[in-house]
């Protein structure tokens, strides 16, 4: 777990260094994700000779993502304490959020499904991906 976490942190560090060093607008962790993608591609090649290489990376990363909800708590608590700002503008803002989120979900999912049917890339993937429920 510690070697895996080190690799993930190294990717983030590299991402932060590049994006800040070159003055890019991309957030450091996003660039770090690209570096980890490259690393995963290299890992597959190294694994041909060393099958144990980077074995725990998948479980560490997935463990982190399984508890993504936890990571939003600290920032959200700060935000909840300032709900009075929203209250000040009344119901209109909440209605706008609910309506817009609803319409956005519908438009996005329908567009995705329609285009995927038209371009012939739909059915086979429906059964993929394990359900964790």
């Amino acid at each position: 777990m510690i070697p895996s976490l080190t690799i993930i942190l190294l990717c983030q560090l590299l991402g932060e260094a590049v994006t800040r060093g070159l003055g890019w607008l991309v957030p450091g962790p996003v660039l770090g994700m690209v570096f980890l993608l490259i690393f995963l591609g290299l890992r597959d090649r190294i694994r041909a000779k060393l099958p144990e290489f980077g074995k725990t990376l998948d479980s560490t990363g997935k463990g982190l993502l399984a508890h993504l909800s936890l990571l939003f708590i600290p920032a959200s608590v700060g935000v909840v304490q300032r709900l009075d700002v929203v209250a000040q503008y009344g119901l209109g803002l909440v209605v706008a959020l609910v309506v817009s989120t609803f319409v956005t979900l519908v438009v996005t999912v329908v567009t995705f499904v329609v285009v995927s049917r038209l371009s012939g890339s739909s059915i086979e993937t429906e059964r993929q991906g394990a359900t964790h429920d």
């Binding site: 976490l5 993930i8 942190l9 990717c11 983030q12 991402g15 957030p27 450091g28 962790p29 996003v30 770090g32 994700m33 690209v34 570096f35 980890l36 993608l37 995963l40 990376l57 998948d58 560490t60 990363g61 997935k62 982190l64 993502l65 993504l68 990571l71 939003f72």
Partner: peptide
């Protein structure tokens, strides 16, 4: 950990 989690999105 939000940063490392963003990096970890590369895994799936």
């Amino acid at each position: 950990l939000l940063g490392p989690a963003t990096v970890a999105l590369a895994i799936p």
